[in-house]
Design a protein around this nucleic acid. Structure first.
Length: 750
DNA sequence: TTTCGCAGAATTTTT
DNA sequence: TTCTGCGAAA
């Protein structure tokens, strides 16, 4: 194995980075600004510990927040330290997410943790279903107490380390109701051997406290603990860490208070402050030199975030160039905004740059649609992140539920999911009887069904349907018992009837679902079990529960990336568009009242700006369709907080390129574009214009037109189709006029 | 039991 | 606008 020496490891670091990497064994807090080489420091710190013989890999624990970050860290460690021959390298060192590590511990020590060996991890969807069932059981009115409220309540409490019996009675109906639901939920999880995300953490924290011997073992083992994204830790995670670290382990916390954007998920930004006290003495290092963005972008980000209070204080700087100013575009509406953005992207491509260097970031997913449509129109390849993750898709969850049932008949959540999927004539009535028996006998739904069928008290039809289901599950297990994981899954998907069921769904949906189910089977074939003490299926299901499955994302495809600001954290792009930067949207309306949430919105904006390496374009729409209604929002306060010296407003007429088209009704000639942003895409555009002109009879949004009476104006919106098309035209000085296109006699202004 | 249609709601989402 | 969930009809 090639041995790297210590100088090699540190020679490419700046002073602050080196200080963090080469600090003697101590507790350290690394405040790492955006783009300051955070991951690198983390990896090199571990490398340094090992190479300076401070620690063996076996004694190091590295914690991240996402599977992706964990994977990346592992890869980079393998490069830096070596893959782990004879337990020396990165393999014997624990790297994982809080949840992943907690899961691993609970798997290893299930007895001490009071869990069945084959406990099942519930994702939030499973959790919600379980809660709904509990409502039925307890006869609670969900119009008064929404399901989501109960789910939020339970998760928040668990995140704070509070179990149902610890909840103080404040004699309010709310608290007593929620406590009852929480308690029933805990009981249901206990009975079914189910553990939700928050429970993984809480349970393993309790495991530390309950089993001193175990705790001591791990305390002695993990002499060095490193935590990434420390600003995102919640109360249990912090407590877990603190207990594990004990008196002697050294903790390195890396984070950025300015990038804390998950407060609404229980993340406690205060944990950074607490860390300094609880782990004193703490060596604090600030990484402020940025290797990502231009000085202009950084200065804008600094100016923005300076409006927040209670910061630990950090100011990014770069040795690099000032770069271009930040463009600000005021769009007429969201359509115009999308068109402008796509237009800019085309110029970017025409100047020889790549699509994959571009990202469009927005506050909420609903914004993606218009952008997506604009991309389709102009034939710009795009990829949207977010939405449903692979393992959360309905068809996949259905398939997994069958698989879960094969391993554990008592998995009530899985049972409920597939008892009538595909529909087999088991409706609410039959299910109700099953639930009743289960409740009376304190057994799972599956065994209740078995009992019920034996008794034969139901109608012949219901009895028959239930029995068919039981037989199906048994048969699936018997036949697949010796199959490989891939064959097993394929068999189950097919013979459970799921494949046909989803294939029958109308539209392209069915097709997509079938493809996803096939994708699942191939994921199973590719799956390599690591632990031969358990069935591969068991291991696969565990992985699926904790992994969102975004691994297969084809990263190398040349396409622009569209995502929410939240999912952009940790990424960087040469060209970034921040779209929809308007009051009520960003900052979001729902954060308007609470100053703390407003600061979080500002941090979100800070995250967005600092994603950009070279170019940043901010846009907002003067009018925007939201929830089907036309809204007029002011430009975001965040824009006003950026120094105007760093900005340039894009002038509509001079900068933006606007195609003029004449539809079929006007002679069937497609005029070429007035200005010159693209030749390459000309044919595509012509194609796109056919649909456009059909819709708009030859006019396009944002186009300048002349009206006989009102004079010159700009088209802001179309309404309706064909002869009944209405146009909204903004005439400077006169305001927006709604006109019937047929009678308005508008002339295009070239 | 299933399916269809209408009313009502509608951030962000690492695990 | 678009999705979800529930109630009424087939």
């Amino acid at each position: 194995m090639p041995q790297m020496n210590t100088t090699d490891l540190t020679q490419n670091l700046n002073d602050a980075q080196r200080e963090a990497v080469c600090a003697p064994a101590c507790n350290q807090l690394v405040l790492a600004g955006a783009g300051s080489g955070k991951t690198r420091v983390l990896v090199q710190r571990i490398g340094w510990l090992i190479q300076s013989a401070e620690a063996s890999p076996h004694e190091i624990l590295a914690v991240t927040f996402t599977n992706k970050a964990a994977r990346e860290m592992r890869e980079r460690l393998n490069e830096a330290v070596g893959g782990g021959v004879g337990g020396y390298g990165a393999r014997s060192l624990w790297v994982g997410t809080f949840h992943g590590l907690a899961h691993r511990l609970l798997k290893m020590h299930w007895q001490e943790a009071g869990l069945p060996q084959n406990f099942q991890v519930l994702d939030s969807d499973d959790q919600l279903r379980l809660i709904k069932r509990i409502y039925q059981q307890l006869n609670i009115d969900d119009s008064k107490w929404p399901f989501r409220q109960a789910q939020g309540f339970i998760n928040t409490k668990k995140d704070e380390g509070i179990r149902s019996q610890h909840i103080q009675d404040d004699y309010s109906a709310y608290t007593s109701n929620m406590r009852t639901i929480y308690a029933a939920y805990e009981e249901a999880c206990e009975r079914g051997g189910m553990v939700d995300f928050a429970e993984l953490l809480l349970r393993s924290h309790e495991l530390w406290l309950k089993s001193t011997a175990l705790l001591q073992h791990y305390q002695q083992r993990f002499r060095f603990i490193l935590v990434d994204e420390f600003q995102d830790t919640n109360t249990v995670q912090y407590a877990w860490l603190r207990v594990l670290a004990g008196q002697s382990s050294k903790v390195t916390a890396v984070g950025d208070d300015d990038q804390s954007i998950y407060g609404w998920r229980g993340a406690k930004i205060e944990n950074i402050h607490k860390f300094e006290k609880d782990f004193a003495p703490v060596n604090v290092t600030r990484l402020e030199q940025n290797y990502r963005s231009t000085a202009t972008i950084l200065n804008a980000a600094n100016a923005l975030i300076a409006n927040n209070t209670d910061r630990l204080g950090k100011s990014l700087w770069t040795e690099g160039e000032d770069g271009e100013k930040i463009d600000l575009y005021a769009a007429f509406n969201e359509q115009d905004e999308a068109r402008y953005i796509v237009d800019r992207i085309q110029s970017w491509v025409n100047s020889g740059r790549s699509l994959s260097e571009v990202a469009i970031l927005y506050r909420s997913n609903a914004q993606s649609r218009v952008l997506e449509e604009a991309c389709i129109r102009e034939q710009v390849a795009y990829k949207i992140y977010g939405g449903h993750r692979f393992y959360e898709r309905m068809e996949i969850k259905n398939a997994l539920a069958y698989l879960r049932l094969l391993l554990n008949r008592d998995d009530d959540v899985a049972f409920e999911r597939v008892i009538n999927t595909p529909t087999r004539g088991i409706g609410g009535k039959s299910l109700e009887s099953v639930r009743l028996v289960a409740q009376e006998q304190g057994c799972s739904l599956y065994s209740a069904t078995v009992k019920l069928v034996k008794q034969g008290v139901l109608t012949a039809r219901a009895n028959n349907a239930l029995n068919t289901f039981l037989l199906l599950v048994e048969e699936l297990e018997n036949i697949t018992v010796d199959m490989s994981l891939g064959d097993l899954t394929e068999y189950v998907v097919k013979h459970s009837g799921l494949l046909d069921f989803h294939a029958k769904e109308k539209g392209e949906k069915g097709q997509a679902r079938v493809e996803n189910l096939q994708e699942l089977a191939s994921a199973c074939r590719l799956f390599t079990p690591e632990d031969d003490s358990v069935k591969p299926l068991r291991e696969f299901l565990d992985t699926a529960a904790l992994d969102s499955g975004d691994t297969q994302a084809d990263e190398y495809e040349s396409a622009i990336q569209m995502m929410t600001l939240h999912s952009a954290k940790g990424l960087e792009f040469p060209m970034v568009f921040l779209a929809g930067v308007e009051e009520n949207l960003f900052p979001h309306q729902m954060s308007a009242e609470d100053p703390e949430r407003m600061e979080e919105e500002r941090r979100l904006c800070y995250v967005g700006i600092t994603r950009a390496m070279e170019r940043l374009v901010i846009s907002y729409a003067e009018s925007r369709r939201m929830h089907g209604k036309e809204k007029f929002n002011a430009v975001s306060r965040f824009v006003r907080e950026l120094p105007s010296a760093l900005m340039q407003e894009v002038r509509i007429k001079s900068t933006i390129t606007r195609p003029t088209t004449y539809g079929k009704d006007y002679g069937g000639v497609f005029a070429t574009k007035v200005s010159s942003s693209s030749n390459v895409h000309a044919s595509n555009e012509a194609k796109a214009f056919i649909t456009k002109s059909d819709e708009y009879s030859g006019f396009t949004l944002g186009q300048s037109v002349v009206h006989a009476k009102f004079g010159e104006g700009v088209i802001m919106q179309f309404e309706g189709k064909g002869a009944r098309t209405q146009v909204h035209v903004n005439f400077p000085g006169l305001g927006v006029k709604r006109l019937m296109l047929e009678y308005a006699k508008l002339e295009p202004l070239v």
